[in-house]
Nucleic acid binder design. Structure first.
Lengths: 218, 218
DNA sequence: AAATTAAATTAGGTTTATCTAACTTTTATT
DNA sequence: AATAAAAGTTAGATAAACCTAATTTAATTT
């Protein structure tokens, strides 16, 4: 059983090593500053994580997650994103409020809880930020986060999140009956200004390029 | 902000002092054994809780919760019972599984989460064990836990929990279409063997005294 | 290549929550 | 009331997670 702190270190390492494609390693200072602790503190913990075979690491060297460390980290990420989805979809939290609470909820230990929550939410693939949720096997879909403005003419996509969190934008979004998981069919794009004609819920509407750039789709 | 451990001490004190009517105080050993720690450990924590004005306590004397300590403890109890209700009603946990997970969930810090969860659950008054859930103001309804066998003839009550958790009992309960919040009208009681004629969901059925003794009502 | 800067580690200290062992106070029993 | 038993406290240790200050190693620059 890992402590909250150990879990947070693993999660931080997953985040850092995933941030830059094919980087796959982190430095002590980088990790420490990400977690808001001093490098000396991180060094201590790194020794411990190495002893537990959760990372591979040599003195003065780079850090990378071992297979078991990565699996653990992905489990935590899965919980985090499932809870964010729960808070957003079931409890009406706003996009910006979910993260802080999910930071706490992700540490609850109960396999049954995770699985049942997943089922309760309908096995969602993306969280309210448009990030992929690892499934029960720990498979993490590469999160092809595209904006609606990048969608091809004639294709159908699904809205997974918004980029802009301003009140005026969100009001506009809900006015159009757009929400997470709404299917959007791209009918045409105007070459002049990039505005798009789209079909949602059987009604045809036109949105500006600026608007389309703030809708994340899959 | 209290630590998990401090919260657990307060919760334990609430539990002990509430267990016996009008007792309202606890001893060090009693508290320690309830929490599974050594008396010496409890003594240390009691000093700390006293400094924080959460309990009133003198060396070698009895312990009781201060007003602010009791409020804190009731908040935690509220969270515990709301989460148990959530796990039971929304995630299909069984009666016996909810406690352990709720022990963890009760420590999540977010007023908004508690309030929204409460609303999501429809402001429940009783948890799956039939215990009263403190409301947002911290008001804890005296939990008149009665069994169906104690209900007066001619009255209508509401099922809040079961006492027996065996599979055979639970199967029987669900077979009869009985569940939490089911309304039960007591039609008649047979003086000979205590069996009861009751009305649930517009159908008249007869249950044994043994059965009625294991259904908790309000 | 030497010198400087940046990155990382070590040593020693703090706080929280726990322990054991020894001691003190209170309560109960004879 | 004296003594034994029970209840509670103190002192000193430990482990986890953090810190600062000093030191060492690695990387960069001239």
């Amino acid at each position: 059983m890992l402590s909250f702190t150990e879990e947070n270190y693993l999660k931080a390492l997953l985040h850092i090593t995933l941030e830059v494609e094919h980087k796959n390693e982190a430095g002590t200072n980088e990790l420490a500053s990400y977690l808001g602790v001093k490098p000396a503190t991180a060094t201590d913990m790194l020794k411990k994580l190495k002893d537990k075979k959760l990372i591979s690491y040599e003195k003065y060297g780079k850090i990378s997650l071992s297979d078991s460390g990565r699996n653990k980290a992905i489990e935590i990420l899965r919980k985090h994103r499932l809870w964010e989805t729960f808070l957003y979809e079931k409890l009406d939290f706003t996009w910006d409020e979910v993260h802080e609470v999910a930071e706490q909820l992700e540490h609850i230990q109960s396999q049954k809880l995770v699985d049942k929550l997943d089922k309760f939410l309908g096995f969602p693939e993306y969280d309210p930020h448009g990030d992929a949720i690892p499934n029960a096997k720990g498979e993490l879909k590469p999160s092809f986060k595209k904006t609606l403005s990048e969608a091809e003419e004639g294709t159908t996509c699904r809205m997974v999140a918004v980029k802009d969190n301003t009140v005026s934008f969100l009001k506009y979004v809900s006015q159009l009956d757009l929400g997470i998981n709404t299917h959007i069919q791209v009918l045409a794009r105007q070459p002049y200004d990039g505005s798009m004609e789209i079909l949602i819920n059987d009604s045809k509407i036109t949105v500006s390029q600026k608007f389309a750039e703030n809708i994340l789709i899959v």
